[in-house]
Design a protein around this nucleic acid. Structure first.
Length: 755
DNA sequence: TTAGGGTTAG
């Protein structure tokens, strides 16, 4: 008996020794686990607790869950070990799932579980769950616990609910430097600089001296709220007060300096980093690269990267982002591949950076390929990756890929994220599925400005002005103030629908009622609106009164309508400006040429062609064909015995010959047949600039009937087409290029295989 | 096993 007891004790201590968190390896722990199961010790509370703790602190959450599952009646302590580890290592969703499980066992959290739970809610910005945890803490009497209160302040701050945070804070009977720092950082993070500074002084008056963390909280808070120059000032003040900036202070400030693009200060800070020996701090180095990248100093950035003492993933990511930021797309992709080939374990930030780089530079297919590669590499996309990927789906109308990303977000529990939700709304709207966009919006538990703008913009894109206005007003009633983007959306809806009165109301209320400065895009919408209804002179007057020099969008809007309404003189005026602003854009020349063609001014058409030749631009024969065909349409609709008819048909023949040489299909006969049977009209063109012409054909004045186009086959810039889907309601549209095929019918898009 | 500050992706 005594011998057996000795063996048991020996076994027990051996196992405990094997589970010593500091010295044991994972395989040792797994061996110990196997021995426990084999020898029937799986009911031993002490051993199970040790195992749980080991697995949880080594991030082996699935093994830890197996242990928890094996405990017949797990107690609060078992749960709290796992929950606190999940919180500590940022596995916040898992922590919340565990709390729910714990509650289902009839167990209530204690003063150890509550802070971990609140940290998880803070990390996820999960306000609703955070409030539930707060209620539970009140009911169970833990809401007055010192640690719980500090965690509550932090949770509300991270969820952007500063009033709730302050309410908890003022009720705290014992405020220490931790709670003070949390509330100060909170106010600073939300941009309340005066309140943050006031609280900072109040803390000192109450006898609590700020520490380095308090200062750093203020600095980073100000930077995050966009008050970068204030954050630099606070750093200087902190230095003056005798606090030596550490790596944390410098990382924040370097990021702020980058935003301010104050290279001088960046160089000085770099000097401080070297002098203080902070160059081995990984965050500081990443921030340094980021600063150089933001200041456009890619060479200095590369140099700083090469000088790095130790290879660091964060710095690799900062380098990729810096190259991408400076439009060095190929370099960014090359570095990414190089890091991968070197065996550096790229993380979600690396993959997201490079995907975002592709999406923002027109490499949509590449972005989708990288996303797939990322998943094959076993890197889990997150709530930042999805909003970076979705624009690629939207740009090429890859609805199936978009839907897959939606399902993925749903499975991973990130579809509630405001950025994911907004990107989904935008993707569905651009793929012609406004109903699905609305559904996504309706399903969002919390909405912010970005979500509202996405849905208002979606309806606007679809030409559904009434719905766009309704949501715009609903947004304001819900307490969300509109910004300049919201106004661009509603003004765009007005311009698409020729709603002059509403357009002026929105335009005038922007500054008067909302204090929002009118930007170039708002003027472009108004000029577009006025010109599309034929008020070309008014549009021109507005352009002349603009406070800043109009850009190509503004002049382009006028020129397009000049073509529609056949206004030669204004068209020439707009073209003159556009030729200076965009000398290499063939679309502008084509539009002017169209205006001349519509008037039978063929010598002028030739003059434009010569201009293009001189600029080295090739006018695609497809444009000429459309241009002439348009003229034939117009004439046949009116007087078939028009005196210019022969001239036009002759020209059409010449154009057709030119097209034939280049492998284009139509000939005179075909076109004339086509004119007689307008329902069978088919337009073929090659590149995106021609697409503008095709769309221009459809861009008839509001109120006039749109010509019916049954089949529209376009090769090129699909994104532009998708924006116009609403105009094609009830029609079939084919969008093709060498890699893919899209078919739109009744606003529904189906795509062919990509690769 | 519990609370506050940092860089790189939107």
């Amino acid at each position: 008996m005594a011998r057996q007891s000795f063996l048991v004790d020996n076994f027990y201590y051996n196992i405990l020794n094997q589970l010593n968190t500091k010295t044991a390896s994972l395989s040792q722990a797994q061996q110990a686990h196997a021995r426990i199961l084999k020898t029937g010790y799986s009911n031993n509370t002490h051993l199970n607790t040790k195992l749980l703790s080991f697995y949880a602190n080594h991030l082996c959450f699935s093994d830890a869950t197996v242990v928890l599952d094996s405990i017949p009646e797990p107690d609060v302590f078992s749960f709290s070990i796992l929950i606190s580890a999940c919180s500590k290592f940022d596995h916040f969703n898992r922590a919340i799932r565990l709390l729910r499980r714990m509650l289902s066992h009839g167990l209530l959290p204690d003063d150890f579980v509550f802070p971990s739970m609140l940290k998880a809610c803070a990390g996820l910005s999960a306000l609703r769950t955070g409030r539930q945890v707060h209620s539970l803490a009140s009911v169970t009497g833990f809401a007055s616990d010192y640690f719980v209160q500090s965690s509550l302040v932090h949770m509300y701050v991270k969820c952007g609910q500063i009033k709730d945070a302050y309410e908890v804070f003022v009720r705290m009977t014992h405020k220490n430097v931790v709670s003070w720092s949390a509330i100060i950082a909170g106010y600073a993070r939300l941009g309340y600089i005066n309140k943050a500074k006031e609280l900072f002084n109040e803390m000192r008056c109450s006898g609590v001296e700020p520490n380095l963390v308090s200062w750093n909280g203020l600095i980073s808070g100000l930077h995050h709220s966009g008050l970068s120059s204030e954050s630099v000032t606070v750093l200087q003040e902190m230095h003056f007060q005798g606090f030596k900036p550490d790596g944390t202070s410098i990382s924040s400030v370097l990021s702020a300096v980058g935003d301010l693009k104050t290279l001088d200060m960046g160089l000085q800070t770099h000097g401080y980093v070297t002098k203080q020996g902070l160059g081995s701090d990984k965050c500081v180095v990443s921030a340094l690269l980021d600063m150089y990248g933001k200041c456009g100093c890619t060479l200095e950035m590369m140099l700083a990267f090469d000088e790095m003492a130790q290879m660091d993933l964060g710095s690799c990511n900062a380098l990729i982002a810096g190259l991408a930021r400076n439009c060095l797309v190929e370099d960014a992709l090359r570095m990414f591949r190089q890091f991968k080939d070197q065996g550096i374990e790229l993380n979600v930030v690396s993959w997201t950076s490079v995907i975002s780089c592709c999406t923002q530079n027109g490499k949509d297919i590449e972005a989708l390929k990288l996303f797939r590669e990322m998943q094959v590499a076993g890197v889990e996309p997150n709530s930042v990756t999805i909003p970076c990927l979705l624009p690629a789906c939207a740009n090429i109308a890859a609805l199936m890929h978009g839907k897959a990303a939606h399902c993925f977000s749903h499975r991973r529990g990130i579809s509630d994220d405001v950025y994911v939700g907004s990107a989904l709304i935008d993707m569905y709207a651009k793929c012609g599925k406004i109903g699905d966009a609305q559904h996504c919006f309706d399903m969002m538990p919390t909405t912010n400005l970005v979500c509202w703008n996405a849905i208002v913009g979606g309806y606007s894109m679809h030409g559904k002005a009434k719905e766009a206005f309704k949501l715009f007003h609903l947004m304001q009633r819900s307490g969300q103030k509109p910004d300049f983007i919201s106004f661009t959306c509603v003004l765009s809806a007005c311009s698409q629908n020729g709603l002059i009165e509403e357009g002026w109301n929105f335009f005038n209320s922007m500054t008067r009622e909302h204090g929002i400065e009118v930007r170039m895009e708002h003027y472009a919408c108004m000029v577009n609106l006025l010109s599309r209804v034929g008020r070309l002179e008014e549009a021109y007057a507005m352009i002349k009164e603009m406070p800043s020099e109009p850009d190509a969008c503004v002049w382009g809007a006028l020129l397009s309508s000049c073509r529609v309404f056949g206004n030669v003189s204004l068209g020439e005026a707009a073209s003159d400006k556009l030729f200076k602003l965009e000398p290499s854009n063939p679309g502008n020349y084509v539009l002017l040429s169209n205006i001349y063609a519509a008037q039978g001014m063929w010598s002028e058409v030739d003059r434009v062609r010569d201009m293009m030749k001189r600029m080295g631009l090739r006018k695609n024969p497809g444009c000429s064909w459309i241009e002439v065909k348009h003229k034939v349409h117009t004439l046949l609709a009116g007087d078939k015995s028009h005196p210019q008819m022969n001239q036009i048909i002759e020209r059409l023949g010449r154009v057709s010959m030119g097209m034939k040489k280049l492998g284009y299909l139509p000939n005179t006969k075909f076109v004339l047949q086509d004119v007689e049977e307008q329902d069978k009209e088919e337009i073929l063109c090659g590149h995106s600039e021609k697409l503008a012409v095709v769309l221009g054909l459809l861009n008839t004045p509001p109120g006039s009937p749109l010509r019916v186009i049954k089949n529209l086959r376009i090769c090129g810039d699909c994104h532009v087409v998708i924006k116009f889907i609403s105009s094609f309601e009830g029609r079939e549209i084919f969008v093709r290029d060498t890699n893919r095929f899209h078919h739109f019918k009744d606003g529904v898009c189906s795509c062919g295989d990509y690769w």
